[in-house]
């Protein structure tokens, strides 16, 4: 969606992930970028270079926070001290919304540092939604949850992944960070139609999108974020924007990171795929796939 309650009624365009190898280029050249996404955890420290760079970036750019360790799907309650630190960062960046993943990754305080898929059960949806609400109430900022790419499915699941995503965000009354590449990767790994996924999520709740590159192995796709975006993902993205409207979009490139210009050019390609969605109300979008 363009501006909606889940992205703080903003209308951001195409953004980039703020990554260390690009710091000096950005600070020296001040390229025109609509917004930067930061990994919150990288800046939840006491001081030093990370916060210095962040403050310089904040003087010039709009920043949105993306987290990797909230683990909405893990059973444990969010750690108070962690939330306090995160809230201090939210105040610093003035992020209009905050995203993290629909996944689990820690048990009793032991972290895998992975984004692990959940069993898609009603019970898990309820518990996860309660956690999202708790975090949002504490941080006082809209939250978008992101679908992860996955390599395994559980017998315990009672619904499809997109039904589960819909169930969670309705119960939590929160937004979706729709990762189109993750949908594609999972569709190949689990044998579902990615267009069914796109058609099945509550479009009015999509506050942001992710696009990224992945790697093909013999028997599965891996979400590597070390490539340009592949054609089928661009096609899915075009369809997603037709369904949801032109939405704040971010290119993720996290490994084997090329020059800033190369990453930026790749992100701006998104403009070529949102033509069909411009001007048309999202609800009128054709259902294809």
């Amino acid at each position: 969606m363009p501006a909606n309650p889940f992205n703080g009624h903003t209308d951001y365009g195409i953004g980039l992930g703020l990554r260390v190898p690009h710091y000096s280029h950005i600070l020296a050249k001040k390229p025109v970028v609509d917004w930067f996404e930061i990994i919150s955890e990288n800046f939840m420290c006491g001081g030093g270079r990370p916060l210095e760079v962040l403050d310089l970036i904040l003087e010039q750019y709009r920043v949105v926070q993306h987290g990797v360790s909230m683990y909405f799907g893990s059973a444990e309650k969010p750690d108070r001290e962690h939330l306090r630190r995160l809230k201090a960062l939210v105040r610093r960046t003035n992020t209009p919304w905050l995203s993290d993943h629909l996944c689990w990754g820690s048990v009793d305080g032991t972290y895998t540092h992975d984004l692990l898929p959940m069993p898609y059960t009603f019970e898990a949806a309820k518990r996860t939604a309660a956690k999202i609400r708790m975090v949002r109430d504490f941080l006082e900022v809209p939250i978008c949850v992101e679908n992860v790419s996955s390599y395994a499915e559980f017998h315990a699941s009672e619904m499809t992944e997109w039904e589960f995503l819909g169930e969670v965000v309705e119960l939590a009354d929160c937004g979706i960070l729709l990762d189109v590449n993750n949908i594609y990767v999972s569709s190949k790994n689990h044998g579902f139609n990615p267009y069914d996924y796109l058609n099945g999520v509550p479009h009015h709740r999509v506050g942001q999108m992710h696009i990224a590159g992945h790697t093909k192995f013999e028997k599965y796709l891996l979400d590597t974020h070390d490539h340009p975006v592949l054609d089928p993902v661009w096609k899915l993205y075009a369809h997603a924007t037709r369904l949801c409207g032109v939405t704040a979009t971010l290119l993720e490139w996290d490994d084997r990171i090329p020059s800033f210009a190369e990453v930026h050019d790749e992100a701006l390609k998104a403009n070529e795929f949102i033509g069909g969605a411009r001007g048309a109300a999202p609800a009128e979008a054709a259902r294809v796939g």
Binding site: T112, H113, L116, Y151, A152, E153, F154, H155, H190
Partner: peptide, 26 residues
Amino acid sequence: EIIKPNDRLTAFDRLEIYNRMYWFRL
């Protein structure tokens, strides 16, 4: 018991992807 296989990977293979990623990352 917990993970479904697909037409290319057994439950073991699928769990192994995560097991390997965990160790490689750390």
